[in-house]
Design a binder for these strands. Structure first.
Lengths: 122, 122
DNA sequence: CAATTAGTTCAATAAATATTGAACATTGGA
DNA sequence: TCCAATGTTCAATATTTATTGAACTAATTG
């Protein structure tokens, strides 16, 4: 079947939820890594983040990100591909995601983001 | 004596803490109201926010905002005057506060921010 | 000095969030 | 069909955060 899990519409994205989502270090690290691979329109797999935490904990954080409207999850076979909802976020809150990502990039060293090990192919 | 409470230096302001601070509806409402009075360089008093919550709960939120580097608290006599640390925040994370405030303004109605009752004089 | 005003601090509780491991589901391949 | 791989879901626990009221501190005023 390969149903996609439920995502909020663009309009349903809420500011406090979005900020809360990105205030968590693990989730910010995920989004930061997604953003650095996203320009090439590349999606990442859940498994690419296994260095960040345990699988079930990651599933928890991915669900939060999805429910807050930060990422789009696509199921293909046995793997989930995720990407940032850049367009939706920027339409809903212009400049916000960019400002956060720029801030995160600026502080990347201080924040000690783990790097994901990309195994996925396009 | 009138000691000022401890504030982080500009450099000590941390992104996750900042986002977490602003993800709370009560604190976002406080910051939103501060921002709308701040252009005139006006400070607001704790008491101006009494409609938002109980005094001790407000003290808790003000402390969080202060410790995260969002606001500057100045004690004068028996009242505390607060203002946004716009310059510091914008130096530390360029464009971030503006983007958040713009987003909050855009969603002001949806977020149902209470309005503070300004009693203070300049 | 007693009373008032402004706000903090503390202790207790409530509520929300994060973390872990085990069991489960789904898909693809041998 | 059976096995391995990828993630999810659930239940239990741990941790953090928010809320409340009472007691307290400091400054001002009569």
């Amino acid at each position: 079947m390969s149903r996609t899990p439920p995502h909020p519409t663009r309009d349903q994205i809420e500011l406090p939820l979005l900020l809360d989502c990105l205030s968590d270090p693990t989730r910010l690290a995920i989004v930061y890594n997604l953003s650095r691979h996203d320009p090439a329109a590349t999606e990442l797999r859940c498994g690419d983040f296994n260095a960040f935490s345990g699988k079930s904990n990651l599933a928890y954080h991915f669900a939060k990100l999805r429910e807050a409207g930060v990422i789009q999850t696509r199921i293909a076979g046995t793997t989930r591909y995720m990407k940032l909802r850049r367009k939706d976020l920027d339409a809903r809150f212009p400049g916000l995601l960019d400002a956060i990502l720029k801030s995160a990039t600026r502080d990347a060293e201080r924040l000690q983001f783990p790097e994901c090990e990309v195994v996925s192919a396009a």
